[in-house]
Write a protein that binds this DNA or RNA. Structure first.
Length: 519
RNA sequence: GUCCCCAUCGUCUAGGGGCCUAGGACACUCCCCUUUCACGGGAGUAACCGGGGUUCGAAUCCCCGUGGGGACGCCA
């Protein structure tokens, strides 16, 4: 039980969830599922200027849209979910019968709260411990002086780091200055020695002595800072593996110092390579679409996005490209994490999304396309569902995103279509009138005798009639019919389109195209 | 600038001393299927950053160089 894997995703709620974050969630989540461990969501909102509840809500929404559930986190209802017992010391309470406040049933999970802004008293305790033991000290240096010194160090070609000026200040003097209204930060006395990290993806990483100076653990307002909270929380929440992006690699030495002074066991660190934009710099907003939300809106499927992201920095031991979630869970491991950074290729994502649109159960994808159709003014919700699915099935093969559905579905939804450029040329061709005319007669006759419904076979028979009546065949027969029926020179097979449209609408369309000026 | 990390087709990657005249996928080109478009199938173009070692043998191991990235915050 105590050896159970516990991983976490710890975003700062300062904006949407971006694809890099999404991949980090994915890897953590996969690892938890793979090992039968727990996946925890922790909100790192100690930067009060930038963190918002709105952003937090958005990120959680995106995480859920992607299909990730978490075992512990803010606002997780404890009943019904298999919440873990802290240190395995509690008895398991049957789900549903837990009382609020009972051990192991706190809101969100046994290590609640999961929002750092709600854990301030915890950090205060540990900060005090550092101060009392002389491992940290108040620092009264102003921003201006610090900035100046940093700039000077850069110019000199050394690592800009705090010079320890305030280490010399006595407790008495510090107390006096605080009483006088000064607001110090609290700095941790960084030990000067080499630190060796055994990283699960990088291998042995050596941080030389003097790599970092005394760093801030408490802001002047008393608010703790990332490196400090992260360590305290990971320890308290019994996180066993820290899977995060490489940008945190050099932070790790600071965190190791903290683990060391508190005498806490280090979790396993796994720093995966970054995702880069086309220009090979860290993927960011200026590279275009980078938020998960944006991809959702553009008609990408969460399955496709997950699959694509999984292959950025990880590869399947079976060398597969298209993997189901279950396959990913079964095959995921830290050993196959790639050290080299990878460039995000939106073209391949698109391709993969198309693969999923084609492969997912028809009823499922059709359902997901409906909002896109509705948004484009196609009242898909009102259509007969079976009919909609059949229609969607004829066009899904050509779709790369769901956002393309409205345009593709127009062939079925819009009887008042305008002729495309190429279609106009076809209409001007000599044989057009004969074919379209024969088609009109055939459709009128069908409607007269058999009504609106027209089967695939019936349409093909009708087509034979048009063929003989117009004396055309092949493309000369086929293109005019397509144009008269759809206004386009391409699209799904007519024998599939016509039965879906019905004789009546087909007739109406042909008549309209035949009346030149109307289109 | 300093420190850390990284280096296989344009991109994602396989490979971890002989199986490599380097495999797959996206993209691109061509062909086939198709009375359209797409889908699908087939073929093709295209890579081990450079230099030194180690070794009978290096894409693979070591060193140096070069290139790229990241970090150097009272951001995370």
């Amino acid at each position: 039980m105590s050896s159970q894997v516990r991983v976490r995703f710890a975003p700062s709620p300062t904006g949407y969830l971006h694809v890099g974050g999404a991949r980090t969630v994915l890897f953590n989540w996969l690892y938890a599922k793979h090992t039968g461990g727990k996946f925890i969501l922790r909100i790192e909102d100690t930067d009060q200027d930038r963190s918002t509840r709105d952003a937090e809500r958005m990120q959680i929404e995106d995480i859920k849209w992607l299909g990730f559930d978490y075992d512990e986190g803010p606002e997780v209802e404890p009943s019904g979910s298999q919440t873990v017992e802290p240190s395995g010391s509690q008895t398991v309470v049957p789900s549903g019968s837990q009382k609020r406040g009972a051990p192991g049933s706190q809101k969100g999970g046994p290590y609640a709260p999961y929002r750092q802004s709600e854990r301030l008293d915890i950090y205060a305790t540990y900060a005090k411990e550092l101060l009392d033991s002389g491992r940290a000290y108040p620092c009264f240096c102003s921003d201006e002086i610090l900035d100046e010194k940093r700039a000077a160090a850069m110019r000199l070609g050394t690592v800009p780091q705090y010079d320890g000026t305030c280490r010399k200040i006595t407790r008495e003097e510090a107390a006096r200055r605080v009483a006088a209204g000064e607001k110090p930060t609290m700095r941790f006395k960084a030990p000067v020695r080499e630190y060796k990290l055994q990283d699960a993806v990088r291998g042995a990483v050596v941080f030389p002595p003097n790599m970092v100076g005394d760093f801030v653990v408490l802001r002047s307002g008393g608010m703790p800072v990332y490196n400090f909270c992260c360590v305290v929380d990971d320890h308290l929440m019994e996180i066993t593996h820290v899977l995060r992006a490489e940008e945190h690699l050099s932070n790790t030495v600071r965190q190791m110092m903290l683990y060391e002074t508190f005498g806490w066991k280090l979790p396993v660190f796994a720093h995966c390579s970054l995702i880069l934009g086309q220009d090979r710099t860290k993927l960011s907003k200026r590279h275009g679409a980078t938020s998960v939300h944006q991809y959702a809106e553009e008609g990408y499927l969460p399955e496709a996005l997950k699959n694509f992201l999984a292959l950025l920095g990880w590869s399947s031991p079976e060398h597969k490209e298209i993997l189901t979630l279950d396959e990913m869970i079964a095959q995921f491991g830290l050993e196959r994490l790639n050290k080299a950074p990878s460039v995000f290729d939106p073209v391949k994502l698109k391709w993969m999304n198309g693969q999923y649109i084609k492969a997912l159960p028809l009823a499922d994808v059709t359902g997901r396309a409906i909002p896109f159709l509705e948004r484009a003014g196609i009242p898909a919700k009102d259509f007969d569902r079976a009919w909609l699915e059949r229609a969607f099935d004829t066009i899904r093969g050509g779709l790369e995103t769901l956002a393309g559905a409205p345009k593709a579905m127009e062939i079925f939804s819009n009887d008042e279509f305008a002729l495309e450029e190429e279609a106009r040329k076809v209409r001007k061709e000599a044989g057009f009138a004969a074919v379209a005319g024969a088609l009109r007669e055939g459709l009128a006759k069908h409607e007269d005798e058999k009504g609106d419904a027209i089967s695939e076979a019936e349409f093909q028979a009708l087509q034979e009639g048009v063929k003989t009546a117009s004396g055309t065949k092949g493309k000369a027969l086929f293109m005019p019919m397509r144009v008269a029926l759809t206004g386009q020179t391409h699209g799904p097979e007519l024998k599939l389109v016509v039965p879906l449209l019905g004789a009546k609408r087909c007739l109406k369309r042909v008549k309209r195209v035949l009346a030149h000026d109307s289109v």
